[in-house]
């Protein structure tokens, strides 16, 4: 084959156009009238403005907006569909998950959580590596928040409404004073959990683990001494709980576990069921109980058979109806 200028320039352009026709124009033609998905809705003006701020600041380089079948994280309940994106111009799928996927972020948290998080992500998420966006100023952060709250469209709207509903209730309870607040908080914990003590014994290793988890997940809101005065506090209302007010209430290991696992919708208190497995939640609960509330029911009554890894002589072991040492082995 003789390579003339014509062959090179025209030849390669012809190839290119043929292939563009095949891999760009044809898919465009077949998908351009994509029907909206069942959750689709158009964005309101502030949400659209927030989206522009999202683009300007390169959130797309750290956040995807596309849930896959193999995902477990935020929004994994709903796999992305082509009909979710029909208003996206440009589409913001993203190519890297330095941070979590945001396609179903709307309503995950109330607005105050987002404001604190945007001012400095380390306020609500101590190990975060997301940049601080305080420089955008309050107005832009509000717009950004309304965009983020719209992610997930109709599904997000339902979640946002739920946040607003419970925010009102939580605020009322908070403003009625600590006793009333604690009563309100605990009233929503199912009965079975309320009477459940922490089944793990208090051990130095367990407390050390609890401390680590507290530093990594809770510290920004509840503060280094558990008085609710973490750096996020000025942005959050009702403010992060001051754990010391729980002393001499009906607090139990089960309540702590349930609240940490499930979060308190309407308040900035997030759920941790995706971040922390069972033992970690018991550990951090016991850490809070021992160091901040100053009373723990860990390893108290009622109690099941000791777990295989439990130390042999824990305080309270004597009063247990189980033999302190295992039964004698048959001869």
């Amino acid at each position: 084959m003789r390579m003339t200028p014509l062959a090179i320039i025209v030849g390669s352009l012809l190839l290119l156009f043929t292939i563009v026709f095949m891999v760009v124009v044809t898919p465009w033609y077949t998908t351009r009238n994509q029907a909206p998905s069942e959750i689709f809705r158009h964005r309101e003006t502030p949400e659209a403005q927030g989206r522009l701020i999202y683009i300007e600041n390169g959130c797309v380089y750290c956040h995807t907006q596309s849930i896959r079948t193999i995902d477990w994280g935020i929004g994994a309940e709903r796999i992305a569909q082509a009909g979710d994106y029909i208003a996206d111009h440009p589409i913001l799928l993203g190519s890297e998950r330095t941070g979590p996927d945001l396609s179903q972020e709307g309503g995950e948290h109330p607005d105050d959580w987002h404001m604190a998080h945007f001012v400095n992500p380390r306020f609500t998420r101590p190990m975060s590596i997301m940049p601080a966006f305080k420089f955008l100023g309050t107005d832009k952060l509000r717009l950004l928040t309304s965009y983020v709250q719209s992610l997930g469209m109709k599904d997000a709207d339902a979640r946002v409404l739920r946040q607003l509903y419970w925010k009102e209730a939580a605020t009322r309870a908070y403003e009625a004073g600590p006793v009333e607040n604690v009563r309100w908080l605990h009233d929503h914990v199912p009965e079975g959990w309320r009477i459940l003590p922490n089944p793990y014994p208090t051990t130095p290793a367990g407390l050390a683990r609890g401390h680590k988890i507290y530093q990594d997940f809770c510290f920004g809101c509840h503060g280094p001494i558990g008085d609710g005065m973490g750096p996020a506090q000025p942005f959050i209302y009702p403010p992060p709980l001051n754990f010391t007010i729980l002393k001499n209430t009906d607090i139990s290991g089960g309540i702590l576990y349930y609240q940490i696992m499930n979060g308190i919708t309407g308040t900035a208190m997030p759920y941790f069921k995706k971040d922390l497995e069972s033992e970690k939640i018991w550990d951090v609960g016991n850490y809070v109980a021992v160091y901040f509330i100053n009373q723990t029911d860990a390893d108290g009554e009622p109690k099941a058979i000791d777990a295989a890894n439990e130390p042999m002589d824990m305080p309270g072991e004597e009063s247990s109806d189980q033999p302190p040492v295992g039964p004698d082995l048959p001869e």
Binding site: V24, P27, Q34, D88, P90, I91
Partner: peptide
Amino acid sequence: ALRGIPDAILL
């Protein structure tokens, strides 16, 4: 940009 999935394909 285009709109929706075709935008991703073109991009």
